[in-house]
């Protein structure tokens, strides 16, 4: 037995299966029309989900990491080192500010400036910390984890981070020169199309907005002034952008196909649950026998 082994008796597990079947059917009744049962299922789902999140946050985070250390030594802010203050008291203060500001936002906006307005202003501080840290981490992560490694891999540059990613990297070896060339070609083409391509309307309609630096305009201008190298450059960019535009549609098709496959799996798993899992549970067989007995 491990902590992950189910400790519930078999009857309770079966009860969960049957309860899941009932709630699934109530929500599935939305296929016919919107009704009370469908809404009931949704409310149960939302309510149980929110309650579970609240309990989890309290049990895993708030109590062991925030409240328990503070309550065990309430005067620690006088003597504790800076690290402890940063870990315990600062999050507590910021959290309380945000919580109070959130509660205040649910109330009506006060007409007179006062404590409520001040609370709303102070709640901006933790919000700003959250947004700022999130953006900073995201931007630096995108550079160090995606942009640079992908560029280096496409250019086949030895990169320390990639080289130490593991000894067994046969998949990386499969990325041949052809794949790298196509990657660069398509990436460049898409960028050119998005930056310089003409914004065309749907279904052959005239473009809603012409970009001033459109490739076609530049090409025409270059031809008018009879500048061969510029004409050639613009022509290459035009073709390259066209490749990028078609690659965009191709990628969209691939993503859609995989999306359909993913959602298909979800639907099949649910049907499998209805048709095979639930009928094989002991509780269901007892219920079914009782229904048949009552019917006969």
């Amino acid at each position: 037995m491990s902590p992950f082994s189910s400790g519930l008796p078999a009857a309770m597990q079966d009860a969960g299966l049957v309860l899941g079947l009932f709630i699934s059917l109530t929500i599935a009744s939305y296929l016919i029309r919107d009704n009370f049962l469908a809404r009931l299922g949704q409310y149960i789902l939302v309510g149980a989900g929110l309650g579970y999140i609240a309990v989890l946050a309290w049990r895993n985070v708030l109590w062991p990491r925030l409240f328990a250390p503070v309550i065990s030594d309430p005067m620690s802010w006088l003597t504790a080192p800076e690290a402890t203050l940063l870990k315990s008291w600062l999050p507590l203060i910021l959290g309380l500010l945000m919580w109070a500001g959130g509660v205040e936002l649910l109330r009506r906006r006060p007409k007179e400036p006062g404590g409520s307005q001040l609370l709303r202003l102070l709640a901006v501080v933790p919000a700003a910390v959250l947004v700022g840290v999130g953006l900073g981490v995201g931007a630096s992560g995108a550079v160090q984890g995606t942009l640079w490694p992908q560029l280096a891999a496409a250019l086949q540059t030895p990169l320390a981070a990639v080289a130490t990613a593991g000894d067994a990297r046969p998949a990386a070896e499969e990325a041949t020169w052809l794949v790298r060339f196509i990657t660069l070609l398509i990436t460049g083409g898409v960028l050119i199309h998005l930056q310089l391509g003409r914004a065309s309307g749907a279904s052959g309609r005239p473009p809603a907005q012409r970009r001033p630096s459109g490739l076609k305009d530049s090409e025409t201008a270059a031809q008018k002034h009879d500048i061969p190298y510029r004409t050639l450059t613009v022509k290459i960019l035009h073709v390259w952008g066209g490749i990028g535009r078609r690659a965009l549609w191709l990628a969209a098709g691939i993503v859609f196909a995989r999306l359909a496959a993913a959602r298909f799996s979800l639907a099949l798993a649910r049907l499998d649950y209805f048709l095979f899992e639930v009928p094989r549970s002991e509780l269901w067989q007892i219920l079914w026998a009782a229904v048949r007995g009552a019917g006969s």
């Binding site: 992908q150 990639v162 990613a165 990297r169 998949a171 990386a172």
Partner: peptide
């Protein structure tokens, strides 16, 4: 399945083994 196309480049770059 839907995540696969977006993650292929990471496999080719060796970030995913």
């Amino acid at each position: 399945a839907v995540a696969d196309p977006a993650l292929r480049p990471y496999l080719h770059s060796g970030q995913l083994v």
